[in-house]
């Protein structure tokens, strides 16, 4: 995958900081594309330390959560780590309701997220 449409990836030393293009992650075809782009970070680009920075993301559905769970499983299998930062308070609440805050370590800022690796 030469370029991403749903993601912006910036390398900070050996950690890939991944930001999201969409403010609201709802559309089914965009979520499918998002999932494929996330998996390509691991499967094709061999990245193993990912910090997902949700700054600017105001809404996401459970279909998007499913993509994060699949990514987590794939990265873990590859011996890597996924962390999350900058969750909108309401999305943070969704992570708590679904108990995904037990699967992902969540930081309040990008710098705090980078420090968790």
């Amino acid at each position: 995958m030469a370029g991403f449409e749903r993601l912006v990836v910036v390398d900070k030393e050996d950690i890939s900081v991944v930001r999201f293009v969409d403010r609201k992650i709802i559309d089914a075809s965009e979520i499918e594309q998002l999932g494929a782009e996330l998996l390509s970070l691991v499967d094709i680009q061999q990245r193993k330390r990912l910090l997902l920075n949700f700054e600017g993301v105001e809404f996401l559905s459970s279909a998007a959560l499913n993509k994060l769970i699949t990514l987590h499983t794939r990265v873990k299998r590859a011996g890597g780590t996924v962390r999350i930062c900058n969750l909108h308070p309401q999305i943070r609440e969704v992570f708590a309701i679904t108990r995904l805050d037990r699967m992902f370590e969540i930081a309040s800022s990008e710098s705090a997220g980078l420090a968790m690796f």
Binding site: S62, N66, I69, T70, H72, I97, T98, R99, R102, M103
Partner: peptide, 18 residues
């Protein structure tokens, strides 16, 4: 229940609970 320990890493099944 998708929050059960053995189902936490299974994608899907969270919509109705949410």
């Amino acid at each position: 229940d998708p929050r059960a320990e053995d189902r936490l890493e299974v994608p899907g099944g969270r919509g109705v609970m949410l």
